[in-house]
Design a binder for these strands. Structure first.
Lengths: 223, 223, 223, 223
DNA sequence: GATGAATGAGTATTCATTCAT
DNA sequence: GATGAATGAATACTCATTCAT
């Protein structure tokens, strides 16, 4: 109510609130990473050491929590892309981007579910992708100009590679969480510029717009 | 068709039941493919145009239905592997195997969930994998003997490639269901025998035993 | 259809039907005795080696089956009472009656449930009791006239003693199915004619009508 | 009442919750007493005037509710046994014990079912019996030393007498809930020390271990 | 007649969300 | 603000009963 009214009384509460918010996000991250999005908000609350009510005070519903939770992670992904642009070598830039992204996504079941099914957090995903798109495009085009990346590769192929690596990581999470590196290596070998024995990539990559449409809308899902 | 030539009264009932069984399987395939394994048996029943009780008469529980449903599909996968061995060219054999598998899995969300999370139908998956393993191994080793496949590739890498392609297909299911072909091409390019610029695959592939262990056992999951 | 038309064709069917009826009753007895009345009619049908439909052809619903099933047993009980009258010694007559009844009821969980809760088979129980009542009355009064039975005992106390013994038998069914004999002996000792140290039975016994009313009507129960 | 003097915010909630808990227990007692253990938790919730969810919040499942519900009653039974030891006269002690137990059990169908079938709350029953056993043994042996109780009576006969009286009470619940007093009197007359016309109790009483084994384990039952 | 397939209301339990304290 | 209690619709599964073959 009196949001900006008295700086004195508002701040301490904010600090508390902010702390709780962080605690909840941290807890949610742990819980969703380990058990996927089907974990309950009661679990999250318990892990955070707060009541469910507090979770609902900070986040209107489960979707919003998931939404907010992955904001950071996407932000980080965008950061990787931005940093990739600054790499001295264009190929290294791309490799690092993919590697870092995969390393972050690896084994995060909740994140995989979000990106695959987008049952929650759609808007956030879209916005993140929107911010990501131009950066990734520049990373890709730069590498292609340098001749370090095959010419028929497309920026929208990048998230797909990330999904694929995440899937591999998720599957092997219990026994060999790092296998995804094998497949990244494999794929990178396939990304090299065309040579005699290179097969042109068939079909068209998705357009950036497709990436958004691709997401199964919430309405297609149950709840 | 004519299962046991001599029984009078058994057949007509069977015909009905078998028809319904097929209807249920068909409905289940549609429902699970579209919405994943969390779809309810009520949904399946509704889609099949029968009562829930009928579904439960044919399949003791949800797991059995899923199990039976994917028996065929796994059987088909094994068939692909077997056929790959007979291909005149060892490389073509491997390519065809991956291609056919991906084509079948593409966009089948239920199947992806089963293989990724094995929340249901574990035994079936394990048995299928067990039968698949030796065949795939021969496909891979044959290609490596012929020098058409990089030497550090392992048979257990095959299912991973299939998962990854399925993920790509699933993500793009609505807009460009065939994108997975791009990524298969990419990966195939990375599978070629080592050359000067080939990076050795880092880490170890999973052992066949790991493949089984990797599967989150039902007990690790919620229900 | 042609029921009485040709005696030749009708009889064999009847015989079949009667055989099935008996088979069903036998199966029902086994199943209900062992698992109580909550056993399903599918179980009964399976045990009888017929389809459920056949059970329903013979007995309009579960209640009727239970009803018919216990007709025999009650009939037997009535028989015991009748035979008790013919015993040369009036005390022996009563003892034998109680003993035989308890022996029959012992460990028959279905029978206990019926008599206690009368969830099924009420009419039959009432009718059986009606036929039983006068006979038991004569057994009791004869013993009292002979001075072998305490004077304040009442005919309606007989079924109560039977219930009580059945309860004891049921409880110990797994470990010592014959314990009820201990308690029968105990009770019999208490039934002897009054002596110095005998306490008069307090309160009134139920009237025969009470016995009927006592039964919880089906409407009080769930289904 | 004032459970832990120093906590500010915990108490008010507790008060509500505790009230509801009591309401649920009260409702459960009524419902189970009247209709037996097959009553549904929805019924209990309705009777308590709360949602089912509330019932499940307080008691993880039906068994726990039954369990908690009968804790008190068993506790009371144990109390009776303990008090019986303090009676000035050993015979009066035993009589009072049986009388009080029967008075409490009389007409409580749920309680009878628990003790007879132990479909729920087994542990509680076992523990209660374990605590009860030694006390009852002392009550019995004391009376036998005093010569007020027949010598072949055994401590494990006590619960059987209670079951039997409960059965009688249950049967007559609607019309003459106190008839069990007749049968207690009868049995008590049979419990007097042996005289010329006393028949020795045949067979063996159950051992205390038998009492536990006797209980049909949950696994022997349906659900 | 016999069979067993089909039906669907009923049961225990879970979980996102609301609300009194 | 924070808490956790309350809610009830939803979910997997059962079983008495009906009905097509």
């Amino acid at each position: 109510m009196a949001q900006q009214a008295g700086e004195h009384r508002v701040r301490p509460l904010r600090r508390d609130a902010e702390m709780n918010r962080q605690r909840i996000l941290r807890a949610a991250s742990q819980v969703f990473t380990a058990r996927g999005l089907q974990a309950t908000l009661d679990d999250v609350a318990r892990q955070a050491g707060v009541g469910v009510g507090t979770v609902y005070r900070r986040f209107p519903d489960k979707e919003s929590l998931v939404d907010a939770l992955f904001e950071d992670k996407f932000q980080t992904l965008v950061g990787y892309a931005e940093r990739a642009l600054e790499a001295p070598d264009s190929w290294t830039g791309l490799v690092t981007l993919l590697e870092q992204a995969a390393a972050m996504l690896a084994g995060d079941r909740g994140l995989l579910e979000i990106m695959m099914y987008a049952s929650y957090g759609q808007d956030r995903v879209h916005r993140a992708r929107a911010r990501m798109q131009p950066v990734v495009t520049r990373v890709v085009e730069r590498a292609q100009r340098d001749g370090t990346l095959r010419a028929d590769f497309r920026p929208t192929d990048v998230p797909f590679i990330e999904f694929m690596l995440t899937t591999a990581a998720e599957y092997a999470a219990q026994v060999r969480p790092e296998v995804w590196r094998r497949y990244l290596t494999l794929i990178l070998d396939g990304l090299r510029p065309c040579r005699a024995d290179t097969t042109p990539l068939p079909g068209e990559a998705l357009t950036p717009d497709d990436m958004v449409i691709a997401m199964p809308s919430v309405s297609q899902r149950r709840r």
